[in-house]
Amino acid sequence: MNELNYSPLTALLTFLGIVLLLFLLFRPGKGWFWLIQKNKESSRKVIIEDILKLLYHSENEEKSLNLVDITRTLKDPDDLIIDSINEMAEHELINLEGEHVKLTQAGSEYGLRIVRAHRLWEKFLAEKTGFAEADWHKIAEQKEHELSDADTDKLSARLGNPQFDPHGDPIPTNTGKMANVTGTLLSEMEVNSFGRIIHIKDKPDIVYRQILAENIHIGSHIRIVEKNANRVVFHSEGEAFVLAPIVAGNITVTELKKDVKVEENIARLSMLTEGETAEIIGISKEMRGESRRRLLDLGFVKGAKVSIELPNPLGEPKAFLIKGTSIALRNNQASKILILKD
């Protein structure tokens, strides 16, 4: 740099120009660089695997699909899909019976592998990362294509070879075995019957997000209070939930015998105020994996007495007195601990 033609103003402006350019290039999600990358990514392999998965799921529900169904369901360009289908037929992953597309043995095994990878990823996202529940499906949808068989097995082992993904769907083993889910749809439960939620369908997206927004989770105990053509009302963990029957149809429940005690008046630890004491009833099923175990190990177990030791002027974290020690928790954790106020 020659000091003669230097002026702080030009230096500043040049700098701003560079920053603007970098911003346009790398803006998260919308930057040009990412857009170009994304285009490259939607490769043949991904489309093939998506088709296999689609076929696998519909054959499980004993529906058969034709070419039009496939092109309509997948978002990729039609010509790419047709190309992929032809390639799949060549490799004997599918049989074309007229308009109908059927999986061969090999194709169905391949499809199962993708399903396995997908569900393991969801389990991983739920247990080991902090991604929002609504994003799990989308992320797993991308990641499932990146795992080799060996990677999938490794992931499975790391998670303790789980049998179910966080939505309650069974995860196939590497030999293709799968636990089966039997239950009643929430929309078909009798009034006053008790049940435990075992499955929440993550499609269609809008309905799933609505269920999540209501804070309904796998493993929660429920009691049906009211049912008619317009709505299903049930109580769970101290709160009342009202759902439209179609939404309720996305939730599967196993019925529980009546003698299972369902506590009324249950509150959440986050609702405890200073000076009150309470007894812990349990930890809601929304709290999973590592963090659930840590709370248990810290003494937040059924029957323990709890009170507020130190409030926080900023709202959170608050310190709770539990088994003789004060332990600070953020509100999102405290709200998952169920209590019965004294």
Binding site: F131, S291, L295, E309, I327
Partner: peptide, 16 residues
């Protein structure tokens, strides 16, 4: 946490 290390905040527990 908004870009390369995206994700939700996870749990926090601290013994005082």
């Amino acid at each position: 946490s908004k870009t390369v290390l995206k994700g939700e905040v996870s749990t926090f527990n601290l013994e005082l």
